[in-house]
Nucleic acid binder design. Structure first.
Length: 987
RNA sequence: GGGCGGUUAGCUCAGCCGGGAGAGCGCUUGCCUUACAAGCAAGAUGUCGGCGGUUCGAUCCCGUCACCGCCCACCA
C-alpha cells in the first residue's frame, strides 16, 4: 500500500471544527450545569457498578441556574435543592483579568480545573465550576489610558463618567474574547453562573464587607507612609512592590555641626535628594564615636535648616558611617523613627515624584534631576566626602515597573493582625491544605509577618469606597446604602470618597460573593466551602491569602479545602514569559496548530506539581502523535466491528461484555462449537499448568469456544483495571501529570503494541467466530474505558471517538468513571503474558541480530524445565508464534537435544533457539554468548555477595531477601544455560 | 540577610514508603507487516552535582559545599 492512502488525525479529524461543534453541543445540552445533571440524559448509575452516587437519574426537575446569571441573589432553585444527595464538588475559577487575552499560564490553570471537574462529574458528583472575570483595577485602567494616550487624550479630558464608560466597553470586548478562549480550551464551566468582580452582586458584597469591617474597627483611615507609583499616580500595597537589586551609590555627606566649625556629622545615603526633607540625624545610642554629638544640632546643607542629632537603636553602627539622615516623609524606617522622636515630616516629593516647594531652589525638578544637582552642589561646597558603589534593593511598581516612591498620604487600611490569626490557624490545623504542602510555609511566613493592608487606590476603575464626607459638618459616613443626607447635620451636602478599592479586595470575596453572598442562597449553602482552588504560585499572597482570611471572617469557614498550586510556564530557555521579553505564546495559536487536546495534555505532562514547566514545541508534536495513536486505535477497532458478520453481534457483545472479565460471565452468548483442540499442548504437563489457564492453540483463543475470555483478553482487562485504579489514585492525589502519563503508557504500550497485535488473527476471522466476538468485545470495552480515563484530559477527541463506538447515553462526559475493579486484576494472566512478552522480545532480538526480515518466518525452539512455565508456554505458543513471526514452535525440556545450527537467547526460565541452518557463524555466535555470559556472571557475583552477607541476611526484610534469591536463581539459570550452549558450540 | 526549588541519558524531565536507573524527543539498525511512517521492531547512551555521614544496602534520609533559578526582607 502506498503511503498516501494511510490515514492520520489531520486528514480527517479537523480538530478545530470538531471541537467547536462538540463544545457547543455540550453547552447547549446543559452538561456543564451544576445541580442539574439529572435531566441531561446521563446514564450514570446505570451500568456503573462502582461509580459513586449513581442516584442522579431520577432527581430531575430542578432547573439549572441559567437565569441566575448576573445578579447573584437567588440562584435559589438550583443546587441546594433538597433531595439531591450527590456529593458536591465545587471550584470557582480564578477570574482572568479583562485586560487582554489568556496566556499559556491560564491554559494550564484552566486545564487543571477542567480535568478535576470532568473527572468528578464522571464520578457522579454534583459539580460546580463557576467561571468569571476580574475587573483588574489598575491593570485595566492602565490599558485604557494607554489606548487614550495613543489618541492623544488623557482620562481627564474625558472625565470620570465617560472614562468609565470606555473601560466598560473595553471590558465587554475582552470578556467576550476570554470566554471564547475558555470554550476553545474545552472548559466545562457553568456559564449560567458566570460572574464579574464588578457586577451588581459582587459590588454589593464588597460594600457589605467594607462596612462591616469598618464597623468592627478593622478598617481605618490614616496618614501613613505608603508605596506610591508616580506613573500610575496611585498607592499600591506592599506586595505590589517588586524589589530588584540594583547597583547604585552610597554618598557620604558632611552635615556641619552647629557652632563647631570644621566638625561634621557624616551621613551615608543612597538618595541624596531626600536630604531636603531631613529632620534629624540619627546615631546608635551606644556608638562611642558619636556619643558627644547626640543632642547637638547640625546644619542641613543647601537649605541651612537646623536639625537635631538623635540616638536610636535602629541605626546599625557598622553600616556606612554609623550616622543616618532621617527623612520621615520619604523612607519607611525614617518614618517610624520620626514617630518615636516626634520629628516633623517634610514632604519634598510630590505625586509625580517632582520636588515640592519645600525643596527650595530644587522645587519642580524631577527626583533624578534633583539628585544630580544636589550631588553637584554638595561637591562644590566640599561637603561630599566620598562616593561608594553600592548594591541595594529598589522597589518597582509591579504594573508599570516605575520606581516606587514612599509617600505620606491619607489612605484606608485593613487591620491585618486580627484577621490573619484565624487564617494561620486554619492552615496549621489542616482545614486548609496546600498541595504541594511546601507552599503552606510560604503562606504562613507571609501571614505571620503581614502588615496592614492599604486598600484605597487613586483610580477610577473599581469599587468606590463606600464613605461619604459631609461638606458642611465634616462628618465621614460609612454606609451600605448611599446616604441622601448627612446623619450628623442633616444636610445633603455629601461627597463620596473619590478613591476605589484595591482590586484584590473584591477578588478576595470571590468564593462566596459569586455564590450569592450576602444573601443566604441555595448555591451558597450547597457549594461553600468550595472543594479546591487551583492557581499559580505567584499569587499566593495577592489572592489565596486574602480569600482565606476574608472567607474565615465572613463565612466562618475556609473558602476551599485544598489549594492546588502549579508552577509557572517558562520559555524553552527557562525564562519567565513576559511581554517585555516578547517570549509569550498565545495558546490559541497552539490550539489552531495542534488541537486543544494536544495542548492540554502537553501542559499536564512533563512536570511535577508545583514545579515550573519549560515549554517546548517538540513536546506538542509528541502529544499530537499520541492523539493520532488514539485515533487510529479507535479506527482499527471500528473497522473490525464493521467487519463482523452481523454487526449486531458485535454490539450486543459489547454491551453485555462490559463486566465479563471475570472469565465466567459470558458463557451463554457465544455459540459453542466447543473443543477444537483442548489438548494441543506440546509437552505433557501443559494441561494442568499451575496458571489455571485453559489450554489453547493458535493464539490461545480456543478458550473462547466456551464463551471464556482468552488469556490475552483477561490480561488486557486486568491491565486496564490496574491502570484505572492507579489513574484514579493519582487524581485523588492531584497528581494530574502522573495520571495522564499512566493512561498514555497503557494505551500505547499495552493496548496498541501488544493487545491489538495479539488479537489480529482472531479479528480477521482466522479462528472461531466466538473467539472473534470476544476479541471484538474486549477490545471495544477496553478502548471505551480508556477513552473515559482520557476524557478529562482530552475531552474532544475522546467524545468524538466515543460517539462512533457502540455506546449508551449521549455523551462520554456523563458516563461513569472507570475507577478500576480490584476483583478483575488477574495476576496469573499477567504473569503468563509477561512470559510471552519476554520470550517474544528475545526472539525478535535474535531475528533482528541475524537480519531476518519481518516477512520471513523462522521456527523457534523453546526449552524449559519448569513445569509451570512449560504449561504457560504450551498455552501461549500461538501468541508467541504470531508476535515473533515464528513458523513452527517446538516446545520441550532440557532433555531434548539442543539444535546445533541456531542462535540462542535465554530469558527467565526459557531457552530460546532460532534454528538457522548455515546462517550462523558459530565463532561469532560463541563470542556473542560469551559476552552475554560475562554480564550475567557479574550479576551473579553481586547477588551471591549480597546473599552471603550475614548483616544483610540478618537485617533485611524477608521479602527483599526472597526477591534477591529469586534473582540469583534466575541469573544462575540463565548463566548455566548459556554455558551449556557454549560448551556445545565449542565441541 | 532569611526561605524555597533545582542539579538524573545529547535535550526536556519522571522517579511514591531507601533494595530494578526510567520516559519523551534526538541518535543507530531493519521494516511502507491489510489501524497508525505522526508508525512498527530491535538497539546504544548515565561517577543520579562534589564531599562526608546514617544503613545490611543511598538517586532517595542527614550534614556540608558548589552552581542555577525563584520568593521574602525597612540596613540608610
Amino acid at each position: 500500500m502506498c503511503q498516501k492512502d494511510k490515514e492520520n488525525l489531520a486528514t480527517v479529524y479537523g480538530p478545530k471544527q470538531v471541537e467547536n461543534r462538540l463544545y457547543e453541543r455540550w453547552r447547549q445540552r446543559g452538561y456543564f450545569r451544576a445541580g442539574a445533571t439529572a435531566d441531561a440524559g446521563t446514564t450514570a448509575g446505570a451500568a456503573g457498578g462502582s461509580a459513586a452516587g449513581s442516584a442522579a437519574g431520577t432527581l430531575a426537575g430542578v432547573t439549572a441556574g441559567a437565569a441566575a446569571a448576573g445578579a447573584a441573589a437567588d440562584a435559589g432553585t438550583t443546587a441546594g435543592a433538597a433531595g439531591d444527595s450527590r456529593e458536591r464538588f465545587a471550584i470557582v475559577m480564578p477570574p482572568p483579568n479583562v485586560t487582554g487575552s489568556l496566556h499559556l499560564g491560564h491554559a494550564m490553570d484552566e486545564t487543571e480545573q477542567d480535568i478535576l471537574t470532568r473527572w468528578r462529574r464522571m464520578q457522579g458528583r454534583d459539580v460546580l465550576w463557576l467561571p468569571g472575570t476580574d475587573h483588574a483595577g489598575i491593570a485595566t485602567q492602565a490599558k485604557v489610558e494607554e489606548k487614550l494616550a495613543q489618541e492623544g487624550k488623557s482620562k481627564y479630558d474625558l472625565g470620570r463618567e465617560e472614562f468609565l464608560r470606555q473601560v466598560w466597553q473595553w471590558k465587554d470586548q475582552y470578556h467576550d474574547r476570554i470566554a471564547r478562549q475558555l470554550g476553545t480550551l474545552g472548559c466545562s464551566c457553568d456559564w449560567g453562573r458566570e460572574r464579574f468582580t464588578l457586577d451588581e452582586g459582587c459590588s454589593r458584597a464588597v460594600r457589605e464587607v467594607f462596612v462591616t469591617l469598618y464597623e468592627k474597627n478593622l478598617i481605618y483611615q490614616g496618614d501613613y507612609l505608603v508605596n506610591w507609583c508616580p506613573k500610575c499616580r496611585t498607592t499600591i500595597s506592599d506586595i505590589e512592590v517588586e524589589h530588584e537589586n540594583e547597583s547604585g551609590f552610597l554618598w557620604h555627606i558632611r552635615y556641619p555641626v552647629k557652632g563647631e566649625p570644621g566638625c561634621f556629622a557624616v551621613v551615608a545615603t543612597t538618595r541624596p535628594e531626600t536630604m531636603l526633607g531631613d529632620t534629624a540625624v540619627a546615631v546608635h545610642p551606644e556608638d562611642a564615636r558619636y556619643a558627644d554629638l547626640v543632642g547637638k544640632t547640625v546644619i542641613l546643607p543647601l537649605l541651612n535648616r537646623e536639625i537635631p542629632i538623635i540616638a536610636d537603636r535602629m541605626v546599625d553602627p557598622a553600616f556606612g558611617t554609623g550616622a543616618v539622615k532621617i527623612t520621615p516623609a520619604h523612607d519607611i524606617n525614617d518614618f517610624e523613627t520620626g514617630l518615636r522622636h516626634g520629628l516633623a515630616q517634610i514632604t519634598v516629593l510630590d505625586e509625580n515624584a517632582r520636588m515640592t516647594e519645600l525643596a527650595g531652589p530644587y522645587a519642580g525638578l524631577d527626583r533624578y534631576a534633583a539628585r544630580e544637582r544636589i550631588v553637584a552642589d554638595l561637591t562644590a561646597l566640599g561637603l561630599l566626602e566620598k562616593i561608594e558603589d553600592h548594591q541595594h534593593a529598589v522597589g518597582h511598581c509591579y504594573r508599570c515597573d516605575t520606581v516606587v516612591e514612599p509617600r505620606i498620604s491619607r489612605q484606608w487600611f485593613v487591620k491585618m493582625r486580627p484577621l490573619a490569626a484565624p487564617a494561620i490557624q486554619a492552615v496549621k490545623d489542616g482545614r486548609l491544605r496546600f498541595v504541594p504542602a511546601r507552599f503552606a510555609k510560604v503562606y504562613l511566613n507571609w501571614m505571620e509577618n503581614v502588615r496592614d493592608w492599604c486598600v484605597s487606590r487613586q483610580l477610577w476603575w473599581g469599587h468606590r469606597i463606600p464613605v461619604w464626607y459631609c461638606g458642611d459638618c465634616g462628618a465621614a459616613i460609612c454606609r451600605r446604602e448611599t446616604p441622601a443626607i448627612c446623619p450628623e447635620c442633616g444636610r445633603p451636602n455629601l461627597k463620596q470618597d473619590p478613591d476605589v478599592l484595591d482590586t484584590w479586595f473584591s477578588s478576595g470575596l470571590w468564593p462566596f460573593s459569586t455564590l450569592g453572598w450576602p444573601e443566604n442562597t441555595a448555591d451558597l449553602r450547597a457549594y461553600y466551602p468550595t472543594s479546591v482552588l487551583v492557581t499559580g504560585r505567584d499569587i499566593i499572597f495577592f489572592w489565596v491569602a486574602r480569600m482565606a482570611f476574608l472567607g474565615l471572617e465572613f463565612m466562618g469557614e475556609v473558602p476551599f479545602r485544598d489549594v492546588l498550586i502549579h508552577g509557572l510556564i517558562l520559555d524553552s530557555q527557562g525564562r519567565k514569559m513576559s511581554k517585555s521579553l516578547g517570549n509569550g505564546i498565545d495558546p490559541i495559536e497552539l490550539i489552531d496548530a495542534y488541537g486543544a487536546d494536544t495542548l492540554r495534555f502537553t501542559l499536564m505532562t512533563g512536570t511535577t506539581p508545583g514545579n515550573d514547566l519549560r515549554f517546548q514545541r517538540e513536546r506538542l508534536e509528541a502529544t499530537r502523535n499520541f492523539c493520532n495513536k488514539i485515533w487510529n486505535a479507535s479506527r482499527f477497532t471500528l473497522m473490525n466491528l464493521a467487519a463482523a458478520e452481523t454487526g449486531a453481534g458485535a454490539e450486543a457483545g459489547a454491551e453485555a461484555g462490559a463486566r465479563a472479565g471475570t472469565g465466567t460471565g459470558a458463557e451463554t452468548d457465544a455459540d459453542a462449537d466447543a473443543d477444537a483442540g483442548t489438548e494441543t499442548g506440546a509437552s505433557g504437563n501443559a494441561g494442568e499448568a499451575g496458571t489455571g489457564i485453559a489450554a489453547g492453540g493458535e493464539t490461545g483463543a480456543e478458550a473462547c469456544a466456551g464463551g471464556q475470555l482468552a488469556l490475552a483478553d483477561r490480561w488486557i482487562t486486568s491491565r486496564f483495571h490496574r491502570c484505572a485504579l492507579e489513574v484514579t489514585a493519582s487524581l485523588e492525589a492531584y497528581d494530574l501529570g502522573a495520571a495522564a502519563q499512566r493512561v498514555y503508557e497503557f494505551l500505547w504500550d499495552e493496548l496498541c503494541d501488544w493487545y491489538i497485535e495479539l488479537i489480529k488473527p482472531r479479528l480477521y476471522g482466522k479462528e472461531t467466530p466466538a473467539s472473534r466476538a470476544l476479541a471484538q468485545r474486549t477490545l471495544t470495552e477496553t478502548l471505551r474505558g480508556t477513552l473515559s480515563l482520557l476524557h478529562p484530559f482530552m475531552p474532544f477527541i475522546t467524545e468524538e471517538l466515543w460517539q462512533h463506538l457502540p455506546h449508551e447515553g449521549e455523551t462520554i462526559m456523563l458516563t461513569p468513571w472507570p475507577a478500576g475493579d480490584p476483583a478483575l486484576l488477574d495476576e496469573k494472566a499477567e504473569a503468563a503474558m509477561g512470559l510471552v512478552m519476554e520470550t517474544v522480545k528475545a526472539a525478535r532480538n535474535l531475528r533482528s541480530q541475524f537480519n531476518i526480515g519481518p516477512g520471513k518466518k523462522a521456527d523457534l525452539i523453546l526449552l524449559t524445565d519448569d513445569p509451570g512455565i512449560a504449561g504457560d508456554l504450551a498455552i501461549c505458543q500461538g501468541y508467541i508464534a504470531h508476535l515473533a513471526a515464528a513458523g513452527h514452535i517446538t516446545l520441550g525440556d532440557s532433555r531434548r537435544e539442543r539444535p546445533r545450527q541456531a542462535a540462542t537467547a535465554v530469558v527467565s526460565g526459557v531457552e530460546i533457539f532460532l534454528p538457522l541452518a548455515g546462517l550462523v557463524d558459530m565463532a561469532a555466535e560463541a563470542a556473542r554468548l560469551k559476552k552475554e555470559a560475562e554480564k550475567i556472571k557479574g550479576e551473579t557475583r553481586a547477588l551471591e555477595g549480597k546473599l552471603a552477607n550475614g548483616a544483610f541476611l540478618a537485617k533485611a526484610p524477608a521479602e527483599v531477601i526472597a526477591k534477591e534469591e529469586a534473582k540469583l536463581a534466575d541469573a544462575r539459570y540463565r548463566l548455566a544455560a548459556l554455558e551449556a550452549r557454549l560448551t556445545m558450540l565449542e565441541d
